[in-house]
């Protein structure tokens, strides 16, 4: 019985979430902030691994990251909507909706062409955003302070509360995704990755699978963008730039598509490297990132998620 419980996705998630929430009380504020940002990036990475399960890698997730961020930001400044949870949720829905609209266009492409077309979309958005002065052009703009159920927290707790909210919302999303991955359509996505032709000849549509995965990835990316904007208190076109998209791909490759928690671990790794090298070696953070990326592709081609999977598979077989 206890073993069975340990294998239960919901149990695992609740355990992890409570652990993080408790740990958050004792760790310094900068680390709380770093983890929140890692969650934001991890959400986007989660979207990419959803696509990767279907055999695609997007080099343009900055597109949805930016849309999510700007959605949250504009709702805050223009409509006066400052509830963080509501902003995250609306950004998720709205960006997912945008994803659903452009997905049929992208879903016809594979491999490098999918990657490049998604990149083109993100760069078009970048080009537009830096030209619109009404929303700050290339400087972006500042987001209003977030509220939670109408209450604005005092500044010293604001980071921690956002941290808790992001853990809770991400936890729910991760659980739902795990269910999707294990469902029949989720398995068919894996089959599309391996042999699209056969999937068609078995009577399922690879196109529909890709549209669905892209829509999910868009929604997650939007939510990540909104969270990142709220955490930073600021949003600018850099969100959509291709180097930002590159960081998301880094996270997903490092994590691999086999495990959900691995994505957040990879994102946390990225954020820690970023903040450490930003502090101690400001000129070499890209170098460190690049070296890590090459090493991880060489030595752990299936990502750190493969270790997680091996661990749990062993556990199950006992």
């Amino acid at each position: 019985m206890p073993l069975k419980l340990l294998n239960n996705v919901i149990f695992q998630s609740i355990f992890l979430m409570s652990l993080l929430i408790v740990v958050g009380i004792f760790i310094p504020n900068w680390l709380v902030f770093v983890i929140t940002k890692a969650i934001a990036y991890g959400l986007v990475g989660l979207g990419i691994i959803t696509l990767m399960r279907g055999g695609l890698v997007s080099f343009g997730q900055g597109f949805v990251f930016g849309i999510g961020g700007y959605t949250a930001g504009l709702l805050g400044t223009q409509a006066g909507l400052t509830d963080a949870m509501l902003l995250l949720f609306i950004s998720f829905l709205f960006t997912g909706f945008i994803g659903l609209i452009i997905a049929p266009l992208l879903a016809r492409y594979r491999d490098i062409f999918f990657a490049m077309l998604s990149l083109a979309f993100s760069m078009v958005l970048y080009g537009i955003l830096i030209k619109i002065d009404a929303i700050g052009g290339s400087d972006g703009f500042v987001l209003p302070e977030s509220t939670y159920f109408g209450i604005s927290p005092s500044p010293e707790y604001a980071d921690y509360i956002l941290y808790v909210v992001s853990i809770l919302m991400t936890g729910v999303v991760s659980i739902l995704l795990r269910y999707y991955y294990n469902s029949t359509p989720g398995l068919i996505a894996l089959a599309v990755r391996e042999n699209e032709l056969r999937v068609e000849y078995l009577g399922s549509s690879a196109f529909n699978v890709t549209v669905l995965n892209f829509t999910i990835a868009a929604g997650l990316g939007g939510m990540g963008g909104a969270l990142n904007g709220i955490a930073l208190g600021h949003i600018d076109p850099e969100f959509t730039y291709w180097t930002t998209s590159g960081e998301f791909v880094f996270i997903s490759i490092l994590a691999g598509y086999l495990s959900v928690p691995a994505v957040f671990l990879a994102a946390l790794f990225l954020e820690l490297v970023r903040s450490f090298s930003g502090r101690y070696f400001p000129d070499t953070w890209q170098l460190i990132l690049g070296v890590f990326l090459i090493l991880s592709i060489i030595f752990i081609p299936s990502g750190i998620g493969s270790f997680f999977k091996q661990f749990f598979d062993k556990f199950k077989n006992k």
Partner: peptide
């Protein structure tokens, strides 16, 4: 045309999945 990295069992599971209508995503 089979799904190479998967097991025989999983291959048939996918074939079965594609033949079913009204999938539940959860």
């Amino acid at each position: 045309q089979i799904f190479e990295p998967m097991s025989t069992w999983e291959n048939i599971l996918i074939a079965l999945g594609t033949s079913q209508k009204n999938h539940s995503y959860f």
